[in-house]
Amino acid sequence: NKFNKELQWATWEIFNLPNLNEEQVKAFIDSLRDDPSQSANLLAEAKKLNDAQA
């Protein structure tokens, strides 16, 4: 299933962003679980936040 692979990839990527704190990671993962179809958008937002906090 396409969404499942995207969800797994986005989850792994978010867990490995070095500049997000635990609460931010949890919030993004919760959002992914709530709406897996938004995984690409949520990953992009997480990466933006990660870069901003570098």
Rank of each mutant, 00 (worst) to 15 (best):
K47T: 06
T11F: 14
L49E: 02
D35H: 10
Q53A: 07
N16T: 07
K2E: 15
F15H: 15
D34K: 09
Q24L: 03
V25E: 02
K2G: 15
R33H: 15
L32P: 00
L43W: 03
N19V: 01
Q53D: 03
E6I: 10
Q38H: 08
A46I: 01
A54V: 11
E23F: 11
E22G: 10
S31E: 11
P18G: 11
K47R: 12
I29Y: 03
Q8W: 14
A27D: 06
K26R: 08
D34H: 09
L49R: 04
A46K: 00
L17V: 01
A54P: 06
D34F: 09
N1T: 04
K5E: 15
L43A: 04
D30I: 09
L43E: 01
A44V: 09
P36T: 05
F3N: 15
N16K: 10
V25Y: 03
A52M: 11
N1R: 03
E45F: 07
E6K: 04
W12Q: 15
I29G: 02
D34W: 13
Q24N: 02
A10Y: 14
E22M: 14
A27R: 12
N16Q: 14
P18D: 06
E23M: 11
A46G: 01
A40F: 08
A40I: 13
F3T: 14
E6G: 03
N50E: 01
W9S: 10
D35T: 06
N4Y: 14
N16H: 13
Q38W: 04
K2F: 09
S39M: 10
N21V: 06
Q53F: 06
Q24A: 02
E13Q: 09
A27M: 13
A27V: 09
K26A: 11
V25Q: 06
E22P: 13
R33D: 13
T11N: 03
A40R: 13
N50V: 01
E22Y: 13
A46S: 02
D51S: 11
R33G: 12
L20T: 00
Q53L: 11
T11A: 09
Q8K: 05
N1Y: 00
K5A: 07
L7V: 12
N41K: 11
L42A: 04
K48L: 08
I14R: 00
W12E: 15
N50F: 01
Q53T: 06
P36N: 03
N19E: 03
L32F: 03
E45I: 10
K26W: 13
S37T: 09
F3D: 14
K5D: 15
L43H: 02
P36M: 08
L49W: 04
N19F: 11
E45G: 05
T11E: 15
A27S: 11
K2S: 14
V25P: 00
F15N: 14
E23P: 05
S31A: 15
A52T: 09
N41H: 10
A46R: 00
F28W: 02
D51T: 09
A52G: 08
Q24G: 00
Q38P: 01
N19L: 04
S37E: 06
D30Y: 07
N1P: 15
K48P: 00
F28M: 04
D35M: 08
S39W: 15
F3Y: 11
V25D: 00
P18F: 08
V25G: 02
S31R: 13
N4K: 04
N16R: 05
E23Q: 13
S39V: 14
Q38T: 03
A27Q: 12
N19D: 06
Q24W: 02
K47N: 06
D35P: 00
N21R: 13
I14S: 02
D30L: 10
A40Y: 11
A27F: 14
L49A: 05
V25N: 01
